[in-house]
Design a protein around this nucleic acid. Structure first.
Length: 395
DNA sequence: TCTGGGGTCCTAGGACCC
DNA sequence: TCTGGGGTCCTAGGACCC
């Protein structure tokens, strides 16, 4: 049996660290990333006093990432900015700059790929890497390889990362969190009892707030507690699928492969309004936003060369409850007007008594637009070549 | 003034078909 | 006059993740 060597590489406080790279004068200060898109360009080397402070913020944003200094004040990602402002009014607030984060994301992934090509993307700031076939990985060289990965990532980006090395994804992911920032943790099966069992169940990727609460209610707090449950008891409580999975997790078992390529399933655009809007009273404003979302989504699909035929909307009401409505079109599309029409049909089936907080549009059932050739949609498109506009050469 | 935006996967029920 | 068993597609909601 070939034992695998899997690494999980997790960039440390990624967005915040990218900003500290740009503004080294903020090093060591509480800084949070979040809020609006951008708020006027800053000078190249602004004084610390020139940065926006949390105390001046009004709005509905949340913290996307907090520097380690900010975490010292109890700030963390997902926290509402208004609440964060109460905890640490002097914290510096920076708008998100996704283009820059994506640029550095590509750099760090390329640096890793150059050493270990079997890489699975897990979002902008983390990856799994299968090191099994990398030369020199045998007996005890896992640490050396992880050090090499860290060095190359830092050389390529100036950023630090934390790495877990283990026989599978589950343990590698647990490991990468254990010695943040800039840490390396090797987890072997024999470390299960000493290093993994003491951890709260919530640390496991896939056990969220709801599952953790159910486990707590059963008196199960740590992964070790879980390991003392029989497989059958867990299956009785959580169902065949999740119960068996929980049991495997507790014993450090995970056979999932590192998936080096995948296709997107859906794309979406959504926005939270600055104030809650009423479907009737704010009809014009809402309609304009709705159309803009569809246009942005269509542009995204076209830029990435995808079409889809499942069109859906998401509504969030003033009480934070959400609903979705969706329909499947007979033909694939990435056309803004077609998406807008279908999404409008969906909206008709939604209750609109309450004020709205968020509106979203989604296209699912995606297919690469260059693979759609033989499809009926192209019949429609080629037919449109013969419409009047094309024939008369207008436009 | 609590609670962003972009995703994936799972479940459950109904429609429909063989 | 009581009622199969699969399979697939679709919708809606929910849990979870980054």
């Amino acid at each position: 049996v070939n034992r695998r060597v899997i690494a999980h590489v997790d960039m440390d406080a990624f967005y915040a660290s990218v900003e500290l790279l740009r503004y080294p004068q903020l090093q060591g200060l509480p800084v949070v990333i979040g809020g609006g898109r951008r708020r006027g360009p800053l000078d190249h080397s602004p004084d610390v006093a020139d940065f926006e402070r949390l105390r001046n913020y009004t709005g509905r944003g949340v913290i996307t990432t907090a520097t380690y200094a900010a975490r010292g004040f109890g700030l963390h990602s997902g926290m509402g900015l208004m609440k964060a402002a109460r905890l640490c009014p002097d914290a510096i607030m920076l708008p998100v700059d996704f283009d820059e984060y994506r640029r550095l994301s590509r750099l760090f992934k390329a640096a890793i790929r150059a050493i270990a090509p079997q890489l699975e993307d897990r979002g902008i700031d983390e990856v799994y890497v299968d090191l099994s076939a990398v030369p020199g990985v045998d007996d005890g060289q896992g640490l050396k390889l992880a050090q090499l990965l860290q060095a190359e990532v830092r050389a390529a980006t100036g950023l630090t990362c934390s790495i877990g090395v283990a026989p599978n994804k589950l343990l590698a992911k647990l490991g990468s969190e254990m010695q943040k920032p800039n840490g390396i943790t090797l987890l072997m099966p024999e470390d299960l009892q000493s290093a993994v069992w003491p951890l709260p169940c919530r640390k496991v990727n896939g056990i969220g707030p709801k599952a953790a609460e159910r486990l707590t209610a059963m008196g199960l707090h740590t992964i070790g507690d879980l390991a003392r449950c029989s497989r059958d008891d867990l299956i009785d409580s959580f169902g065949a699928h999740q119960g068996a999975w929980l049991h495997d997790v507790a014993w450090g078992r995970d056979e999932r492969r590192v998936v080096t390529q995948s296709e997107p399933v859906s794309m979406s655009c959504e926005t939270t309004f600055e104030r809650d809007l009423h479907a009737v009273r704010d009809r014009a404003e809402l309609s304009a936003i709705f159309t803009r979302l569809c246009q942005r989504l269509a542009a995204d699909l076209q830029r990435k060369s995808y079409v889809g035929r499942n069109i859906g909307i998401k509504l969030r009401f003033d009480n934070f409850s959400s609903i979705t409505r969706a329909l499947t079109l007979p033909e694939f599309t990435s056309d803004a007007a077609a998406i807008r029409r279908a999404a409008g049909q969906c909206l008709k089936r939604a209750p609109l008594e309450r004020k709205l907080r968020l509106l979203g549009v989604r296209v699912g059932g995606l297919m690469r637009s260059d693979e759609v050739m033989s499809h009926t949609v192209d019949v429609a498109q080629s037919l449109s070549l013969f419409d009047n506009e094309a024939l008369t050469g207008k436009r």
